[in-house]
Amino acid sequence: MAARSALSVKNATKNFGGLIAVNQMSFDIEEHEVLGLIGPNGSGKTTMMNLISGALRISSGHIQLFGHVISGQSASQISRLGVARTFQLVRMLNSMTVLENVEAGGVFGHRKLWGGSLQMQAVEMLEKVGMGDAVYSPISALTYIDQKRVELARALMSDPRLLLLDEWLAGLNPSELQIGIDLVNSLREEGRTIIVVEHVMDAIRSLCDRCVVMNSGYKIAEGTPAEVLADEEVIRAYLGDDHA
């Protein structure tokens, strides 16, 4: 038997008025798999992530997490079932310390820690993402990559069964990028199930077991990174977009 399906998306569709941002998308992720969700700008990747995390309500179709229908549930319910995410535009709790920003992920969601065990876990997560020195810093003291690390630590606090990373590597310089890729790779080695949305092709090649390619809301290809990046329609979608 194949590995368990962690997430199963069937004909997911989202329209904003007349614009169909996600159109009849179907794909599956197995447990422990790292799936790349790629496509040109505006192709609907973030919208797809928003449908999975419950940030947006699906227009039609459905999504299952470990056999359990999650489409139609609220974002907070879905987070309690074990989906955690980072955001394309990093979201920090600015009036709180780094530690509290991380703790926020471990109290109300898939894991419900409090008190000493919460703090211990949060410090551990911060060390894991390389932020062990900044535990009590205010958010204003952090650089962009550090904020991204804090956000990842917050997502990991819930011990998610599915982790969604929306352009988590975007905006990093080459040396930071390598650190970032190594970090995501360490999560993959832990056996985490992850969907990564990325534009950085090197990252996709080195991180993803499989890729789903979107264009204008549709799925246009699916397969290993090498396969999809050689696919004619994929190349056309990227080049066409560059000329648009």
Binding site: S53, S79, F87, S95, V107, G109
Partner: peptide, 18 residues
């Protein structure tokens, strides 16, 4: 704690299970 998170960013709050 939940209220402080809500006051900072409601999107983060709902995605943290609040």
């Amino acid at each position: 704690f939940a209220l402080r998170i809500i006051g900072n960013d409601e999107v983060v709050a709902v995605h943290s299970g609040i």
